[in-house]
Amino acid sequence: MSAILPVKLPIDKTTKNQLRRGKRRQEFVAAKRTKKRLTSRGATAAALVIAVLWTVPTFGLFVSSFRPAQEVRSTGWWTIFSNWGLTLDNYSEVLQAGNSQLNLAGAFINSLAITLPATLLPLIIASLAAYAFAWINFRGKNVLFIAVFALQIVPLQMALVPLLQFFSRGEIFGFPVVSAISDAGGYSQVWIAHTMFALPLAIYLLHNFVSEIPADVIEAARVDGAGHGQIFFRIVLPLTMPAIASFAIFQFLWVWNDLLVALIFADGAVAPMTKLLAEITGSRGQDWHLLTAGAFISILVPLIVFFSLQRYFVRGLLAGSTKG
């Protein structure tokens, strides 16, 4: 599992309000700095130490990836000023590295081709289901919703192998149902697998947002003659767009950073970067000039997403804990 799953535990109402209050205040923290500072000098120093400790590893990787192979092999990156030298050769070399079927440049393309559909598909399917759970009454709704909620903590490991067999044989409990999907090759297996695995959390989180739309709005649309199709497309979808966007960031990072699903469902020429990098780490574990450059390429896209959409990222993370 990736680290970036939003909080998914329900919490009581007071805490919910409290977190929401905190979130709001957090955004105005700059304006309120004039308030008296509660932190002492020692605390600030301790914070500085932690911050440096947390940043140095990534910084070292970044510096090393630009140093000539010979230097990386023989001296530490902290001696860069006494052993000066910068180069882009590591990057051009690592993009060509890989196995007989695939190099890292191809794996980068694969990562993109896997991640984009695997982000959009589950979101659309989940928002349809979330709408039904929020605004259509039917018997057994609560039970079904709790069942979906509970599914999100079934470990992926429980589903991987049987799902792989289903893809390759098209059988359920030994009965043939559909033709084998894996015969088609390509990304279809990974797309479908990621879509399935994302659904429980996506349905749960989006339901929280969809159900918070005021009932009057939905009712007004219904009176004006809109059916469920129109209400969903013209009212619910636009209103929940911010929530969908913040979950989309998580799903994007989740799929981009995933290794487990890729190991099982993306073989050979369709493998994403995480899988190829893990492979290179195993086969050329001491070629640090390649590993550092390769790792930096793979974390570049998530870092860009993170820094440009940081506000939504934090908001989405807190949404999981503040919505109940």
Partner: peptide, 30 residues
Amino acid sequence: VFIDKSRGEKYFKIMVFMPMAISFVGASII
């Protein structure tokens, strides 16, 4: 607690929060 209401709180947060965007594979190599 340490960075609460301190100057540059936002940047302090980003520094510690950044590893969350990095894949476990990337973090392992680091």
